[in-house]
Nucleic acid binder design. Sequence first.
DNA 1: ACCATTAATGTGTGCGCACACACTTATTTA
DNA 2: TAAATAAGTGTGTGCGCACACATTAATGGT
Lengths: 354, 354
Amino acid sequence: MNKVKKVTIQDVAKYANVSVGTIDRVIHNRGKVSPEKKQKIEEVIQKLNFNPNLLARTLALGNRFQICALIPSAPYSDHYWSIPKSGLEKAETMYKHFGVVVDIFYYQLFDESSFNDQAQKILSQNPDGIILAPLFIHESQLFVRQLEEKAIPYVFIDSDLPGQNSLSYIGPDLEQSAFIAAKLLDSVLEKEGDLLMLHMVKGYENAVALKRIESGFEKFFSNRNDNPDRIHKLTINSTNKEAVFRELTKFYIKNQNIKGVFVTNSKAFLVSDFHLTHELNIKIVGYDLVQENVSHLKSGSIDFLISQSPQQQGMKAVQSLFELFVYKKEPEKIQNVPLDIIIRENVDFYLNFN
Amino acid sequence: MNKVKKVTIQDVAKYANVSVGTIDRVIHNRGKVSPEKKQKIEEVIQKLNFNPNLLARTLALGNRFQICALIPSAPYSDHYWSIPKSGLEKAETMYKHFGVVVDIFYYQLFDESSFNDQAQKILSQNPDGIILAPLFIHESQLFVRQLEEKAIPYVFIDSDLPGQNSLSYIGPDLEQSAFIAAKLLDSVLEKEGDLLMLHMVKGYENAVALKRIESGFEKFFSNRNDNPDRIHKLTINSTNKEAVFRELTKFYIKNQNIKGVFVTNSKAFLVSDFHLTHELNIKIVGYDLVQENVSHLKSGSIDFLISQSPQQQGMKAVQSLFELFVYKKEPEKIQNVPLDIIIRENVDFYLNFN
DNA sequence: ACCATTAATGTGTGCGCACACACTTATTTA
DNA sequence: TAAATAAGTGTGTGCGCACACATTAATGGT
């Protein structure tokens, strides 16, 4: 058994003929060390390849890093937001031994006041770092301003709020994701028929994000010099089934040559439902592995889903903050996650979140 | 600052009116504890939600877990095997604080004797766990037998060796991956033209694996009652460019209606090269994000690559062994990794291995 | 009734580190 | 010249746990 005996601070001390206290001073440059010894010690550290034992350090310091996350609540299991949440939790169990605590606060998806309430609660806790899904632009900006006053670092997940001093944005490249959606739709369409890009919004959505998506989608076709009239856009101000059905009916009656739909949120299953009830053979590309989408994908009524590694987003967010706390390591300002292309045949591999 | 004071063994002791030694006995059931106290203590542990501090435990035990990995060497950077390797290393830095050491041993891809040499070296180290890429079936079986004699747990990555007592297999579902390849090829082919499934082997490959791939590929078309004559198979006993070109020339002259090729190893770029030099417009689906494949994908001469999360394989392997060591937790016997569908538009997101 | 077992419990030490504190010398200052 | 100050060092304690060992209480045999 080759016990790769770890080099300890004691070893360094013995080797350099000083006490551990002096080593400690050098490591943390607290001064009060004669230049000669300092240099000697630094050499010894090099030679012995000494690395402080993070375990012992954490134990001795007893430091706790409180990370607060502010994300939408998942009203039911299998809801989209339960996945980033599971990523946060997974990362917490990973890092909890190093004193990391992740407290998750939830706001209601269409209720800014709940956002503000929770934000204030978080502020009163004086956490060491924040993970924020800034779905409400204005409220998020206000919150972020307060964080900056308190010098609390924060990362965005899921969607970005450019122009802020966030430590990092961890999420999809939206424009590229729409470009991919376009390509996928095109690949199943035999190069003919019209296309619909369908937004469903409730008025609070990030308009910049939608613009990016539109631009990515259109870019694919303009790159090919396609006829721009092929692409239709429809915005429905609701995610309510009846409302969506009503609007879709109206639209499809006027536009009978639609062969493919790109649904720009996670509600592709609603459109799929509509197609099924009206026996329309129209292809669908959507976002996110929410339960309804998955079952429509498996039954073949949705063709592609684009998944933006939601679990990884949660994990990376915690990881980025942890590394900042412990190693003073600044993460990349933008961390784009993989855009997974999901079809019926590979969906199962993406579904197990232990 | 809400210091979420962690519950320690001391707290439990005080609360239960016993000494820490008794708590310790209960936790590790070393016996010698009166039933009443035992029950009392267990209740207190529940009530206070006591969780042993893994840091302190690791520090106190001073245990080191040596994991040896035996994988093919990566002759150049960007080689396929550098990715699982990076996964192993990433996991090591993650778990090194808990005493995990991952020693990687390399064998030459087409040299069984190098495999045996390294295997013996590993055995002489008496490691606590093994990660093995069992590309050489016979030699791997021999190695595994020796591991079992020594009761050293082992996991397979990349390819499975069914019928062995491995702790886990961490890798792709090959059959499904070929099924996906078929679907992708089909989706870009406008439902006509012949298909080629191309093996390149050097005689040492896992025949069972190839059978699985064939079966998955064929299943897709037979599910649709396609004409089986559409599918051609070719096996080239080399990965040498000249040899491959020669054999492909021979084949394409005889089979002029081929519209798509599925390359069953990571050498799709060779076929792509061939198509480019001979100006053939034939679609390609292949495996793995090796550097040459990526550049052909980006230039458009390869259409799809299927990636089998190589980095995750390395990470999960270490993780599985770690959890076995520390938590006595047996992993799933088969851990299939995601089969990522890679196209030009999303490849970049999969390429950064910090 | 005595000592020898055995069961049940408590105590002390070290893992590697950070940090407060104590201790030396040399250098000022009153 | 004594005392205060500073620069450079060493020592001791605790973080939470595991484990060897010391101690006490309960039971047995003769």
